[in-house]
């Protein structure tokens, strides 16, 4: 059994290394065959519809809504991942107990969604009331 796992890991490792090679090879070929003409300094500006770029884009602020979505995602993703082992043994558990626990778990998960909904996480700035 351990041999099988080791061989599976070898497959994964080899596929990953070959993937990197397949991604790097076109770039290397392109580096070799690209034209080496002189380019003007303006070509090296980042594109901003012809304007001279203003500031660093890392300094601009983004809506807090993105952060709330990310938090929601973390809560959901981790909770849903707990259900994956449950699914593999679902047929071995007595019916009443399995369904009962499943309903409780999903209910708590859904409560999180309802809470965020009521709190207005899914509203965008134009529709937002002031709380």
């Amino acid at each position: 059994m351990n041999d099988k796992i080791l061989i599976d890991y070898m497959y994964i490792g080899l596929f990953f290394l070959c993937g990197i090679a397949a991604a790097g090879a076109p770039i290397l070929i392109s580096l070799l065959v690209r034209p080496r003409t002189k380019i003007s300094q303006r070509t090296l500006q980042t594109y901003e519809c012809g304007n001279i770029p203003f500031g660093q884009s890392w300094d601009f602020r983004h809506g807090i809504g993105f952060y709330l979505y990310a938090l929601m995602f973390l809560a959901f993703e981790v909770d849903v991942l707990y259900l994956y082992p449950v699914a593999t043994v679902f047929h071995k558990v007595p019916a009443f107990r399995a369904v009962g626990l499943f309903v409780v778990f999903l209910g708590i998960l859904a409560l999180g969604l309802i809470y965020a909904w009521r709190k207005g996480v899914f509203l965008w700035t134009s529709e937002k009331k002031i709380y």
Binding site: G19, A23, S30, R34, P35
Partner: peptide, 29 residues
């Protein structure tokens, strides 16, 4: 593949090169 590789001046260095590699390397898995 025969086009000039243009890397703008103020990009975040090595990350700019790594991003297409990360996009492409797990595709075989």
């Amino acid at each position: 593949i025969a086009k000039q590789l243009i890397v703008p001046d103020n990009v975040a260095g090595i990350l700019f090169y790594v991003a297409p590699l990360i996009a492409m390397s797990p595709v075989a898995l």
